[in-house]
């Protein structure tokens, strides 16, 4: 057996035979490691890896900051959130101040995107529309993801009757056609805010996430490391939160970010049908649905809200993709 190597004198460890040799190879592969090439194990004391304990999330963050895809999408999202909260930052006009005489007019000084059917400024409406779309997208996704992953995760972990009951309930919700459900559910609601729409989307959206979460947890549960954690004395809560959740979260994040785009589009669909958001609320969905009938006469009316919607959805999907990659240590 080789001499025990001490961390205080890393140079000594170079001589370590057998299995010790192969770890240099692993270290090289891992690229971002601080370990120098074989033969020079002289890592300065207090190097980056000796500091405070790193967790999966802090490691992921470390990676994300260097990922251009993440940086760009995060900047877009931050910008969207900012203008959702304070639209006046970049738009001084009033989205509801319209001049019917300017209906469908093209760009004019002070009105770079032109005017819509009612003669409202498209630029101002696009900026103000971010609030409804972002609120619906983010809140509905967060709601569906939290509800779905908690219920689905528990069903996958504990199995048995809880799983059976939950699976049947989610089957029922899967069976409801989303547009028909929206017509029935939202037509009786008189509240014109975004909340009934969010509630409806969460109600129909959680089973999809729950099914993914359930499957991911069931897969993770079968791994040896779960049995090993149990054998080393970890309880159910710890196993579920510390060992299974990080391994099961990736598919949920992917599905949730894709769902976010779908939910924003769903809000537009429901608004188009007249049961989603209603004027005077300003939303991309409402504007797209009005513009879609005039696409040949005034394409600019459709272009700007639809472009904003596409950029938003793309930004969230790219963000989700980057986060998923960062959470997988094997890709590091």
């Amino acid at each position: 057996m080789p001499e025990p190597s001490s961390a205080q004198d890393p140079a000594e460890s170079v001589g370590n035979a057998g299995a010790g040799g192969t770890m240099d190879f692993a270290a090289e592969q891992a690229g971002s490691l601080t370990a120098p090439p074989p033969g020079e194990h002289l890592v300065p004391e207090g190097g980056t890896t000796t500091g405070k304990p790193r967790s999966l999330w802090s490691d992921a963050w470390h990676d994300l900051r260097r990922n251009p895809v993440f940086v760009v999408s995060a900047l877009v999202i931050v910008f969207l959130v900012l203008i959702s909260i304070w639209p006046k930052l970049i738009a001084s006009g009033n989205p509801l101040a319209c001049d019917i005489n300017k209906s469908q007019d093209g760009p004019a000084p002070g009105h770079p995107f032109g005017f819509d059917l009612q003669g409202c400024d498209v630029y101002t409406r696009t900026v103000y529309g971010a609030r409804a779309s972002v609120t619906v997208g983010v809140c509905a996704t967060a709601g569906a993801a939290i509800l779905g992953s908690v219920l689905g995760g528990l069903a996958g972990f504990f199995g048995g009757w809880w799983d059976a009951v939950l699976s049947r309930i989610s089957d029922v919700f899967f069976g409801i056609p989303i547009v028909l459900g929206g017509l029935v559910f939202l037509s009786v609601v008189t509240n014109t805010t975004v909340w009934p729409v969010i509630g409806f989307i969460v109600l129909l959206g959680w089973p999809q996430i729950a099914r993914i979460a359930r499957g991911a947890v069931m897969t993770a549960k079968q791994h040896d490391y779960v049995q090993a954690a149990r054998a080393l004395g970890a309880g159910n809560t710890r196993i579920l939160l510390r060992h299974i959740a990080p391994n099961a979260v990736a598919p949920v994040i992917v599905v949730a970010t894709i769902a976010l785009g779908t939910y924003i589009a769903l809000e537009a669909t429901l608004s188009f049908l007249g049961v989603g958001l209603k004027p005077p609320t300003v939303s991309w969905g409402i504007d797209i649905s009005t513009a879609s009938t005039e696409i040949r006469d005034a394409p600019h009316m459709l272009l700007w809200p639809a472009g904003a919607l596409s950029v938003t959805v793309l930004a969230f999907i790219m963000l989700g993709d980057a986060v998923r990659d960062a959470l997988d240590p094997k890709l590091r």
Binding site: A7, N16, G20, A27, A30, P329, K330
Partner: peptide, 14 residues
């Protein structure tokens, strides 16, 4: 006897 334990404690199993 894992060489350079202090440097490697933050590494992942793979």
């Amino acid at each position: 006897r894992i060489p350079a334990a202090r440097q490697r404690v933050g590494d992942y199993p793979h």
